[in-house]
Nucleic acid binder design. Structure first.
Lengths: 223, 223, 223, 223
DNA sequence: TTTTAACCGAGACGGTACGTCAAGTCTTAAC
DNA sequence: GTTAAGACTTGACGTACCGTCTCGGTTAAAA
């Protein structure tokens, strides 16, 4: 088993590295579970290493030995919960109707953001990422990328189906679709509703521009 | 004189409210300046009320008397710096070419995000907003909304010029254009470059779809 | 009226002295009463100038203007309460039987020490005296001395009656009688009971020595 | 080793007690020494836990972990200094002449009271005792009692030598001799001189009465 | 099988910052 | 010019955690 995946933000760099072979799996799981639960219960501001250690029935040193920061613990906690037992990432639905599929997925995301049990840990992790480039890199590679790959795969399927142009920059496309949702969630600058999800999916696919930005162009929208 | 603008995140709610008429303007400015400078210098994690007070040459109590949280101080600091002396918000450029204007503005935003002097305080404020609904409300109303209104005004101008459809939901449109930028900035899931800004502006305006959804266009999809 | 007696520990020495003629008698009484009551209610440790000012409905500056320290306020408070409206000090009982009179007085003192309403302010004042020589001088002159004079007067009466030798150092005598009571009260090194008062009165008058420490020694005590 | 002697005023009662076995002896000594030195240098009013911690090179929590109050620290500091390395209490001189021995001891006490290095910490401790019954109990049992026992032992010796009556209440006797000294020291109601010590010793032993209360002596009281 | 080296729970330690309280100074407006 | 009111700087309070260190105890690989 590859325990390396448990040190996403880099193992502690001072002194000798600990011997991963002897690591207690029970402690590791207890710590991650405690961190995840605690952040949902008391919120990010009151989450502390001491609290996690106490809740997990673990010495503080056991946390400091294996994780370099509170954010790294949080990262692993979210990572653990985000992955099924197989470690894979589910693919996006593909009914052949991209617009409908996107609307479905965005609505599901809206629902997740509305559930504090998911939302709070993610918010906390986002906060840590914003201030810790190392953690951000780990996040980009190990949490965002797999999901992004699934999203891009769905878009590629749409490309193959002729729904999207073949030369589309898929990273920009993914950001255009999901970025507004994330931004509104974090900044709370507007309501996060299914209606917003629908409007977002439609606007992203169709663009904001009128079909033809000329007086004549207007006539091109018949039927 | 309107002293109301000094309590954006809500005055402390415990006990009697302090007498705002006697408030020291010098202390207020020193605190906000110190907060803004410090967050740029030492970063969000090491920003402390004690540090702000010391830097501002002010008693801690003076901060606690007028602001309910570190985030509220940060909010006012950003607010103070974001507004010119007149307190107004600048309008977006309007050359008649929406795409070009948007690209210009997004590139400028990218540049701001790249400058730690602007970026760090904003990151810190974003973090606080993510965990403090009260602060989020103040942010939405007093920082985001004026800017958003300027953005919407530019889009309305485009509507009048026939560049955008008249029934466009402008809030969704604004989020579609600027949301991806914010998300990538906070989550660091990709490079924040002028190229990204350009691609974003284009994609948002044109949509992702292969062509304008005209009857003929549809036929171009083989099979 | 002589308001000079209100600044026993010395008026504030910085800056111009306030104009005593304009002093508000109502505020003065409210402050002293508040101080006396508060020290009995919340104890010495939690007695604060702010608390006194708030309870008296008075600005803090009014206290600082007229008293140099918390102890000085306390002193005046105790002084006010210790004196009747006439300002005189009551004489000790004089039935002709010194031993009985002393026992009576000491028992009364024991009772006073047992009553927190008297005891707490006195304890607080004693504490201040122990650390403030200025206040100690004021105490010695204005609180202790009158009382001590009354005690000495009773002893002088006993000298005239032949109960005490004429060459007795009355200050030492007063300390010998009342000192042990005070010490036990402050240090709580033993129970403060009527029995102790009686034993003390007897021992002080008779001395500890056996009537005749040596057969010959007796002869040394000639008339 | 008896670590029990380190919690004279009672260990902190909230929560679990700390694990005394792991206590740092170096920190304990540094704290007590710092407390003792500081109270002599800056006085009782300016003595603070923060100051002690800083002077001792110790975290504040280390003080709060092991002592319930500033007074308890002071107590241990005085206790440490009052005991020799053996922890015993020296006996009073016993030349066979009680009066001379007492005068000697009282003069020595007067000298100690005149030396700020001893006097200041004791004054501070007395102050704390006066307002903290728990501390007073600890004082009575662990500082006063051993010394009092030594005093009583000297008096017992005098009883055996026939200098004092066998039925004398020794506690009252001790208070009669030493109480006036303590009272005058704390209240500064008179000069603390060798002469006072001598007069006190003599008066306490001989009593104030004009003559020994022998049956015949009584007849000397006219009318 | 025994050693031995690492991890483990526990928690004391020197620190930093918290948010509160009060000290003593200063300013304002009412009287 | 005093007064009530209260904002101000200062500094200590007692608490919560930080990240480091050390203590016995267990446990699993090495001898």
């Amino acid at each position: 088993m590859n325990t390396e995946r448990n040190s996403p933000a880099g193992a502690p760099t001072k002194g000798r590295p600990p011997n991963a072979a002897r690591r207690s799996e029970a402690s590791r799981r207890a710590i991650l579970t405690a961190a995840f639960d605690l952040v949902g219960e008391v919120g990010y501001a009151k989450l502390s290493i001491e609290g996690i250690a106490a809740r997990a029935g673990v010495g503080k040193q056991t946390i400091y030995r294996w994780w370099p920061s509170k954010g790294a613990v949080l990262f692993d906690a979210v990572l653990m919960l985000s992955q099924g037992p197989d470690g894979g990432t589910a693919a996006l639905p593909d009914t052949g109707d991209l617009a409908a599929d996107l609307a479905l997925v965005l609505r599901a995301t809206v629902d997740e953001f509305a559930d504090p049990r998911f939302s709070e840990p993610l918010r906390a992790l986002s906060t840590e990422i914003a201030h810790d480039p190392d953690l951000a890199r780990a996040y980009a590679e190990r949490l965002d990328q797999p999901l992004r790959e699934a999203k891009k795969e769905r878009l590629r399927s749409a490309q193959r189906a002729g729904e999207l142009p073949g030369d589309l920059d898929l990273d920009v496309a993914v950001d255009l679709i999901w970025g507004p949702l994330t931004a509104r969630w974090l900044h709370r600058t507007g309501p996060l509703t299914h209606a917003f999800a629908d409007a977002l999916a439609a606007a992203a696919l169709n663009g904001l521009r009128t079909a033809a930005p000329t007086p004549e162009g207007r006539k091109k929208q018949p039927e």
